[in-house]
Design a protein around this nucleic acid. Structure first.
Lengths: 195, 195, 195, 195
DNA sequence: TATGAATGAGTCTTCATTCAT
DNA sequence: GATGAATGAAGACTCATTCAT
């Protein structure tokens, strides 16, 4: 129960919440059905707002789509941040990294979000910067474990695995993952020693 | 009298050629703009056939879209086959493989086709078998160079690199590729001796 | 009753007639309400065709509007042609011309069409060539009665009178008209003697 | 305390100025794009006032449109008045009048305003009184130079020339104008001697 | 067999107007 | 008194699909 005063009763005359609800709905639709499924009507229904609200808050459908995608990327970045802080105290060996990534490859929801991001941007070059934010975030995270060049290779490797795991519907084995990651990291020039 | 003869003079009074032209147009549109760009009108115009022809040869637009995707996969398989036969005499070392893959990562058209395939199937589980044909073809190709498990990892790696290279618009360096591939292959249990 | 065979029964599966009906409806709406009143819905209802038909036959509303306007201009030109041939045998004195124009200034329908033409083109420079066809037609007609320069002045004069007569709802007197036209023609260098 | 003082500092907390700004914006839009371009949003943006202000000061959009038109007519009347006083000392011969009118026919902005007035009223009989104020003002002005009947003819002539000059984008020559005006005035019964 | 006509559903978008604040 | 949020109606346009020919 919040402070006091108007406890619930939001939604009407709460532009911010309304906008959020619309974007949330767009993001969900993006994950479920891809960018082509974003229509004013669908978003409005999903968000529980009248049709006019979607056009009132967003000048064009493109803008709405991008806002939804933005939310997805924000979520992904939060996830990356979460992983990073959760692994703060862990040893920096390849095995530990493999365990972390393996966990990620078991999180279907998370991967579905990534896939939605790829799908939405593949044919929309103007939105690719959003996907790059995810790529770069991953590279940055991996840079805690290896040198930048290897981090980039590992980031690409990660996305490839995501694609294959999701398409095949089969998980990736932890030991194989460990083997590959270990090999890739060992092959690199090594992480620069900070300080 | 039909039968043989008339090697040229196709297209008119050649239902098969017409069908092919339509599917070809659909495939092109798929690569250029994604599944959302496939409409009867657009395909008809692109193929240079009357509007009615698109509905005459294909019961529904979905069917047409899928046929176009099919063509894409066929092309990809041809490409894989081409690579395989072209590399028939080459040594089976990681360096040679890296060179082959590096060439692939320089072929923007080819990668665009792959991307179109991902994009078209990400949100259509029923079409994923088509993408898997590409995945499997790649695994099979790579199995000439390493063990099956490593081949699967390499195939995923390949798709990840494709994604990153295309999205970033930056090529991948041959030496990095060589390093990664060498490491991955060396880490594997080794290729079963065929024969 | 036409030839034989299908006597009436047109309208369905008679694209030409359909197109004509649509344009006719657009032209009527143009005269009655101005260019702003042209909407797909209104035209469709007026023409007695389904909404989709208007977009099927015309790529854009602008095209439809222009087609309607075109019809108006065609009508006007027919009218000019009619006047010309009707006055073929008449003497070429200013009095005869005044009588002809006076008749025109009594034809409310005809003037309403002209007004619609002005109204539709005033804010659409791209359509002005259509209005100029009327201006030029009038100049040509008047050139049968006087020199080109004076014909141009008279044509402008005609349009001004149309505007005032229609806006005031009061006719112009024949004798005043005669006086003005006579004065204008007499002031000119005179018609070039043909041959 | 209000009353006098504060010569500047208007606009905020000055309802009248706000209203004026809105009407001014409407008038401008009328001239630039015709009545169809008048929308609350556009007017508000143009006037630099919040959207709500346009509905606060004007019950309906029609009312706003008419107010804008009103302003146009006021401007036109001012212009006529200006011409009259400017020509107060001039000789009353046709040549002088021709010069004055020729100046008017060179003032594209002024003519555009007139055109906007025609365009806005052609299809709105209820607004025609506004256009008649311009017609009548012109007749009155011309009555300083000729008899009423001829003044009416000249006023119509003026509007016709405006239409043709603007539509053709070509100016009218001073000598032709002089010739026509001279002829028309000479043909009249002559101006009643005032006083 | 082949095709262009046909149309209703659905898309994006704009907007006058109302109203809560 | 002001104003931005709100929304349903309507507008332009596209199109899959059906069907007459």
């Amino acid at each position: 129960m919040p402070e006091s005063g108007k406890p619930a009763a939001r939604s009407r005359r709460d532009p911010q919440a309304r906008r959020r609800a619309i974007v949330r709905a767009a993001a969900d639709l993006l994950v479920e059905g891809g960018g082509g499924d974003i229509t004013h009507r669908r978003v409005a229904e999903r968000a529980g707002v009248p049709l006019g609200a979607t056009t009132y808050y967003f000048t064009s459908l493109d803008e709405l789509r991008e806002a939804g995608l933005q939310v997805l990327v924000d979520e992904i970045e939060e996830f990356v941040e979460h992983v990073r802080s959760a692994s703060a105290g862990e040893p920096r060996g390849p095995e530990a990294l493999a365990r972390i990534l393996h966990e990620y490859f078991s999180d279907t929801d998370q991967m579905r979000t990534d896939l939605a991001l790829y799908g939405a941007t593949i044919h929309r070059p103007e939105l690719r910067p959003l996907a790059l934010r995810w790529f770069d975030g991953m590279v940055e995270l991996l840079s805690d474990w290896t040198d930048p060049a290897t981090a980039r290779l590992l980031a690409a490797f990660t996305d490839g695995i995501t694609l294959h795991v999701m398409f095949r519907g089969e998980p990736v084995e932890l030991d194989e993952l460990t083997r590959a990651i270990t090999a890739l990291i060992r092959s690199g020039p090594g992480r620069e020693e900070a300080k």
